[in-house]
Amino acid sequence: MTRPEAPLTSRTRMSQVVLIACALAAFIAVTALASLLLSIAVEGTGSLSWKFLTSFASRKAASAGILAPLAGSVWVCAICAFVAIPMGIGTALYLEEYAKKSRLQGIIQLNISNLAGVPSIVYGLLALAVFVRCFGFRSGETPLSFSVDWSAMRILSPGDPDSLWFIQIPFGSGVLAGGLTLALVVLPIMITASQEALRAVPKSLRQAAEALGSTRWQVAWRVTLPAALPTMMTGAILSISRALGEAAPLLVIGGFLMVMQTPTNLMSDFTVLPMQIYNWSGRPQEEFHRIAAAAIIVQLAVLLTFNALAIFVRQSFQKPLQS
């Protein structure tokens, strides 16, 4: 049987067309990003200074700085990391190592996939009800307040607002509520990343540990977790850099505040870099646009540092798991 040959010229032509189309797409994407960065750099570098980093907000653009949003971002992201990383890893461990193939696992998995697609502003609404207002607990009254005195190991009630461990219930729109809100936003990402990390651990290692008589927890603690940790950390850092860029859910829980101090405890009012950028760029005066651009440069620098850290962790701690 003879088979007619496909004409070679049309095949090569097709290949070239695809090549050009892909190159064009890549070029457009890179140009858009480059022009964005360039315009921000041109507009913002003039306003960047040590004073800009260490001053509070002001009604005059010339004397305004980003100390409060910078400190607010650090506080909120630290709380977010503290909550989201252990919870994300714990959930992933449960789903991958314990509840494998159970009905419950299917339900939870479906929910996590759905949650990852929920717009972050919806998390803001949830957080407003749960964290800021605590389901209306003591609404209209003075909040329940206490502080923990670790040196004397006792709880003071009512709390001392100057203490670092001052807690109010409901939380109000302080850094604690902000951090928990962001933890909600990044939790699905953190869980998924940790699950991927656990799945990448070769089955043969689990079997080796099981065959030696490990309990499930021993398998997880001594074999699976150590092997998956570098990948999990990469996921964690990327989750936190996502949290660093969120403005919408925080706007819902607190609105924009002109904060004139850095947070001192978990109940302190705060603002974050993206909210400050949003606020300044929305003002009519040209000077504020310039300092908004400067704040964007700071934000990008922090983000790039985080991403570089993620790459560094991945490169230096990832050991080969199999020969």
Binding site: P202, S204, A208, A209, A211, L212, G213, A227, P320, S323
Partner: peptide
């Protein structure tokens, strides 16, 4: 099963040392 596997060891097809 944990006690059983202390009494019955296993070696697999592909060498699988821990990293």
């Amino acid at each position: 099963v944990v006690a059983l596997r202390r009494r019955v060891g296993m070696v697999f097809q592909k060498p699988n040392p821990f990293p």
